[in-house]
């Protein structure tokens, strides 16, 4: 990827409603590559940004499945094949007694997949990100809401985009250096 001097241009808003309105207007103006930052999750913001990400639940499903098969397989293999104990001729494949283990390993692997998947898909841990170069951005974890049109957007123009963001009645507009 070509290294661009600017990551994007960022506008600061006072409340979630202003942010959602701004996202709608920005998309209506034709911009597509943007990200919003907020101090808490806002469903309307993801909707406005048309975020559709369904990968995590699928990963978790397969994590859980692997845990299920692994747990049951471990109990069955060790009790039937590798270390069979004959207790009064009772069946070696005593599957009902393997179910608690199967359930626990299923939950464990699903949960591990969920957390690692969340971090992995979000690219965390990330020691550096350009948005933190904007001084006001420290408030993104407290009370302010930010919209950043990124420089990779085909319609991005340093002055034009800035002027456009200023029409959205933001508290401030800042260039995000890379």
């Amino acid at each position: 990827m070509k290294r661009v001097p600017l990551h994007g241009i960022m506008a600061e808003f006072d409340n979630p409603t202003a942010l959602v309105v701004a996202i709608h207007k920005t998309r209506a103006a034709g911009y597509r590559v943007m990200d919003a930052y907020s101090p808490f999750p806002i469903e309307e913001v993801s909707e406005a940004l048309h975020i559709h990400d369904r990968l995590l639940p699928i990963l978790v499903f397969f994590g859980g499945l692997a845990g299920c098969i692994g747990g049951f397989g471990l109990a069955t293999w060790t009790s039937m094949i590798d270390y069979p104990i004959n207790v009064g001729g009772r069946p070696l494949l005593s599957w009902p007694s393997f179910l608690p283990i199967t359930f626990e390993t299923c939950v464990l692997l699903a949960a591990v997949t969920c957390v690692l998947g969340l971090l992995g898909l979000n690219g965390l841990p990330m020691p550096y990100h350009p948005v933190f170069n904007v001084p006001q951005f420290a408030l993104a974890s407290r009370e302010k809401f930010f919209l950043c049109i990124e420089a990779t957007d085909p319609q991005f123009h340093r002055q034009e985009t800035r002027r456009f963001l200023e029409t959205l009645a933001p508290l401030s507009v800042a260039e995000v250096e890379n």
Partner: peptide
């Protein structure tokens, strides 16, 4: 870990949180 409150991150976060609740 560099959490920045990005909308996409929050979206996945909420999914993950619900999934973990469902598993717990």
């Amino acid at each position: 870990m560099g959490w920045r409150g990005s909308a996409l991150h929050w979206h996945r976060y909420e999914t993950a949180y619900l999934l973990l609740a469902g598993l717990s």
